[in-house]
Design a protein around this nucleic acid. Structure first.
Length: 553
RNA sequence: GCGCCUGUAGCUCAGCUGGAUAGAGCAACUGACUUCUAAUCAGUAGGUCUGAGGUUCGAAUCCUCACAGGCGCGCCA
């Protein structure tokens, strides 16, 4: 529907272009007016042209509308100019019904687009260190990343979901030392626990598992046995990470190991590649990358005086790797506490000739965990913190995901366990799911009463839908593509969350005022069709958000 | 000290990248279950968009400066 409107406008503008003697036109933006009385769709193009043409926006709007009148007009009840220069379209009911018919016929495929044209995009998210369980912040990243992947896939991109494993370096070594210390305890040897070691119970669990498998085999020095113990520990952590994420409904296509890149010599290769571009130099016994030639405010060390690569060197290699694997667009989802690293990574990608706009970082702001308004105390040092798994077990995966998807990523978020679990009215996820369940129930009822489902799906005469609430639903349904496209372009899944609440809202109103199933067979069929359309859109929306759509509640 | 994010109804948040009379949910108040699920609906009330300037036809949105909260500024990972 949006295409039809922009198409008509484009046509009108093209013929006006010569007369106005301008070359470029601003983007044609279709908006949904705030107030339904204003119309169904609104265009701001006239106001956008004021500066270019140096004319009154209303006058421009009039010129445009005049041109449109010359074109075909059978799609609209009226087109009027309002306010400072809006062009408001009131769409003919038949046109809306045509859209509804198409939705019923093509179902989910009509809700997806080819915006991405098969371009390869890689989205890296979560990427938690395999040294501890996932916490609530990781959950937020997982929920947003997962939804974004789903959205971009539905928008025609070739999406790869990736988890980057920091399995090289001190943190992993510390994990190994921590497990080793617990392991010795189990073997009856009380050694000193590493000062900065991980103290959580999961460390002991790993040690126990190791002991069950290997007995006292490694009960020597860390120098002799640290390797296999560390290996065992981090592999087990990975398995747990993968399981936690899977139970949260989040799957990855690829798990990229940092260690592997080192082993394969890719880190060295990447630095060499920069070197051949003249972007590497030696100073003070260290090796530096001239990131300040790009976005960064200073140069960064890639290889320390002691000859070890820095973590940043791995990052360089990893982002080069992303390019080498042929991705057109790279999206990194990070915790907001890493925002300071954006300029240097941006510099790396620019050094490797990736255009600026092809790299996006989405920052996930901090989550504060509360219980009935009181902050939940968390201390990573003592290992005393609530894990993502515990949150999911307590409040459920759907609610958890939904809470994360109902706010934009870069604003702080309070996650109240008490509210999430108990006061269901504060959880709009139920509101949406309930609408879906009600529709399912209607169909069940209809089947029992003999109104056949196929009639509900396609057979209804949509022109019988005359109630104001029915029109509200039809209009709301027609807005999905607009909302969906906006969510995809801006990488903002929460827009779909809000839309679904609105759609559920107009449906609930309708449900309370009118009966779908009645003695009037034709009307029943038409209304069942409408319900089916709502069902399809709700299902599609929930699916991309990664939230379930239960038939019954 | 420098940088980034945030500041909108009592609370939690939207506000479609500069548009029309700033919107939802919760909480409060008034009503609606003999009827396809009341996890719902109808209605009332609730605002100096943190503050001060600026940019223009037009600002919650953009620019500057304050104020408040959060997070970063390593040859750590």
């Amino acid at each position: 529907m949006k295409e039809e409107i922009t198409g008509i406008i484009k046509c009108a503008l093209n013929s006006l272009k010569k007369q106005w003697e301008i070359k470029d036109l601003p983007d044609i933006e279709v908006e949904i007016p705030k107030n339904e009385a204003m119309g169904d769709f609104a265009l701001t193009i006239a106001m956008r042209l004021t500066k270019l043409l140096k004319k009154n926006p209303r006058a421009i709007a009039e010129e445009i509308v005049e041109k449109i009148n010359a074109e075909e007009l059978e799609l609209f009840d009226n087109i009027e100019i309002a306010g400072p220069g809006f062009i408001n379209f009131r769409v003919k009911k038949e046109f809306f019904c045509k859209g509804l018919g198409q939705l019923l016929e093509e179902e989910h495929s009509s809700l997806r687009t080819d915006l991405g044209k098969g371009h390869k995009v890689q989205i890296e998210f979560v990427s938690a260190n395999p040294t501890g369980p996932l916490h609530i912040g990781h959950g937020r990243g997982a929920a947003v990343g997962n939804a974004l992947c789903n959205i971009l896939k539905a928008a025609g991109y070739d999406v790869q979901r990736e988890f980057y494993i920091n399995d090289e370096g001190l943190q992993v070594k510390l994990l190994g030392e921590s497990v080793f210390a617990r392991y010795l305890e189990i073997c009856g040897r009380d050694d000193e626990f590493p000062e900065a070691g991980y103290k959580g119970d999961y460390i002991r669990d790993i040690a126990l598992a190791l002991h069950a498998e290997a007995g006292d085999k490694y009960a020597g020095t860390f120098e002799d046995n640290g390797g296999p113990v560390t290996d065992y520990a981090y592999k087990m952590m990975l398995v747990n990470l993968e399981k936690d994420l899977r139970d949260f409904g989040v799957l990855f296509d690829n798990w990229q190991s940092e260690k592997e890149m080192h082993v394969q010599g890719k880190v060295t290769d990447a630095i060499d590649a920069l070197n051949s571009k003249g972007l590497i130099y030696e100073k003070d016994g260290a090796t530096w990358f001239s990131s300040s030639q790009f976005e960064d405010d200073k140069d960064r060390v890639v290889k320390k005086q002691d000859g070890q690569y820095t973590y940043f060197a791995s990052d360089i290699s990893y982002h080069k790797e992303k390019l080498d694997r042929g991705f057109d667009t790279i999206i990194d989802i990070w915790g907001a506490d890493h925002h300071g690293y954006i300029p240097r990574i941006r510099s790396v990608l620019e050094a490797f000739d990736l255009p600026k706009e092809k790299f996006t970082v989405i920052l996930i702001q901090m989550v504060s965990l509360l219980r009935n308004g009181e902050p939940v105390k968390m201390s990573k040092r003592s290992g005393d913190f609530i894990t993502l798994r515990e949150v999911i077990e307590e409040v459920g995966a759907d609610i958890t995901k939904f809470v994360f998807l109902s706010k934009k990523a870069d604003s702080h978020l309070d996650f109240d366990l008490g509210i999430a679990k108990e006061q269901s009215s504060e959880n709009p996820v139920f509101y949406i799911q309930y609408a879906f369940a009600r529709i399912s129930s209607i169909f069940k009822q209809a089947t029992e009463k003999g109104s056949s489902l196929p009639a509900g799906r396609q057979g209804g005469d949509l022109s019988l839908l005359k109630e104001a609430e029915e029109m509200s639903i039809i209009k709301k349904l027609s807005q999905y593509p607009l909302v969906f496209e906006g969510a995809a372009i801006s990488c903002e899944p929460h827009r779909i969350t809000y839309y679904l609440q609105e759609l559920a809202g107009v449906f609930h109103s309708y449900y309370n005022k009118h009966r779908v199933i009645s003695d009037d067979a034709k009307l029943t069929a038409a209304r069942l069709s409408l319900c089916m359309a709502v069902r399809i859109v709700l299902e599609e929306g929930l699916k991309v958000l990664g939230v379930s759509a239960p038939e019954r509640m």
